[in-house]
Amino acid sequence: MEGASYQRFPKVKIRELKDDYAKFELRETDASMANALRRVMIAEVPTIAIDLVEIEVNSSVLNDEFIAHRLGLIPLTSERAMSMRFSRDCDACDGDGQCEFCSVEFHLRAKCIGDQTLDVTSKDLYSSDHTVVPVDFSDSGAGYENPEDQRGITIVKLRKGQELRLRAIARKGIGKDHAKWSPAATVTFMYEPEIHINEEMMETLSLEEKTSVVESSPTKVFALNPQTHQVEVVDPEAYTYDDEVLKKVEAMGKPGLIEVYAKEDSFIFTVESTGAVKASQLVINAIEVLKQKLDAVRLLEDTVEADDQFGELGAHMRGG
């Protein structure tokens, strides 16, 4: 473990922050770091999701497993998840996941009495813990003009006389075990592109040629300034590394007119949350989890247990 120190101090600049959406820049680090963060967000940030369903009555058209599967996929608010215990290593209960430290109980009772079909939605789930409830999308203003229409996530539709009664237990888990525990809807990053326009060469182009260069990109990266008739980069991040502009420029016989480089140490992250955790919290939790993992690596660095956990990697770390 000797040699030069690769320690760097990454910087984060938040561009946009909403409850379920975050866009930020991560600078002065490399791809492995960015990717580790992404992977942890998808697979290792814990949330709470329904894991056990006991069905009392189900006369709906969907069968028990079907409903259980749908229930599992409903995002539950999981701010508590970081502090909760996994039911498998909960010592307050004997691992059956029935205690308040590791589980939350839900009840659902719905029966259709009227002639109209009744939509059973996530709002019909009654939680034993007010901090762990199905995610409410109504306040996020996601295109629903009338909040009355928004009744949560549909679980099943009941017709007259059909009934659904069940008890469900939600547990803490991570996305690695099942996608229902993944708090991230979308986590992605891109290298920040650096676009250079050779102004001198550009001046040699006619107006028509300039427009064709501008239009060659499928996304709106370039624009023609109406006053100066100059090609300008309006939105470098819209560039999708599709090389279309470069091909165009090449075809025009002007290689080097436009050059694009990916900044190897600068990433633009987009994080969308399922609603289980706020997008900002998701990133923070991910860093926390990542830190814990690294701590675990550091602690186990030269123990034999490392072999159990890291396999060959453990031997590597011990310099094997």
């Binding site: 960015a34 990717n35 992404r38 992977r39 891109m190 499928p218 819209a238 999708t240």
Partner: peptide, 19 residues
């Protein structure tokens, strides 16, 4: 809609994070 005309996309490896 901002895709390439030939249906190809620029993807990153999920394992390393590199393009």
């Amino acid at each position: 809609h901002g895709f390439c005309y030939n249906g190809k996309d620029f993807l990153y490896s999920g394992i390393t994070g590199t393009p």
